[in-house]
Amino acid sequence: MISLIAALAVDRVIGMENAMPWNLPADLAWFKRNTLNKPVIMGRHTWESIGRPLPGRKNIILSSQPGTDDRVTWVKSVDEAIAACGDVPEIMVIGGGRVYEQFLPKAQKLYLTHIDAEVEGDTHFPDYEPDDWESVFSEFHDADAQNSHSYCFEILERR
Score class of each variant (00 low, 15 high):
V78N: 11
H124K: 12
H114M: 13
H149W: 00
K106Y: 10
Q65A: 11
D122A: 00
T46S: 15
S77F: 14
P55I: 12
D87I: 09
K38R: 12
P25L: 09
A29F: 06
H141E: 04
D79S: 12
D79Y: 10
A9Q: 02
I61G: 01
V72G: 13
F140E: 12
D132Q: 10
Y100L: 03
F153H: 06
W74A: 06
R33E: 14
M16W: 08
N34F: 06
H124V: 11
A84Y: 06
W74Q: 04
L8E: 04
A117C: 06
R52L: 13
H114S: 12
H124S: 11
S138E: 12
E139G: 06
P130I: 13
W22V: 00
E48W: 15
S49T: 14
D70L: 14
A6F: 14
L112Y: 02
R57L: 00
D11S: 08
A29W: 06
T123F: 00
S150L: 04
A145P: 07
P55T: 12
V78D: 14
Y151M: 08
F103G: 00
D87A: 11
R98G: 11
A6Y: 05
V75G: 04
S138Q: 14
D127M: 14
N37Y: 10
A143N: 07
K38V: 05
F31Y: 06
L8M: 09
E120N: 12
I155K: 05
H45V: 03
A19M: 09
G97A: 09
W133F: 13
R33Y: 14
F140H: 07
G56R: 09
S64K: 14
K76D: 13
G86H: 09
V72D: 05
T123Q: 03
K38C: 12
K109Y: 03
F153G: 03
A26E: 02
V75D: 00
S63K: 02
I155T: 05
Q108V: 07
F103S: 03
P39N: 10
E154R: 14
R159F: 11
P25H: 06
D144G: 11
L54I: 03
R98T: 06
E157A: 09
K32R: 05
E154T: 14
N23C: 12
E134Y: 11
Q108C: 06
P66S: 12
M92I: 14
A83R: 08
C85Q: 03
D144Y: 03
E90M: 04
K109E: 01
V13D: 01
V136M: 11
K58W: 09
Q102V: 11
T123K: 09
Y111K: 00
L24W: 02
P105L: 09
I155N: 01
R44C: 15
V10D: 06
H124C: 13
I115L: 01
V99T: 05
A143F: 07
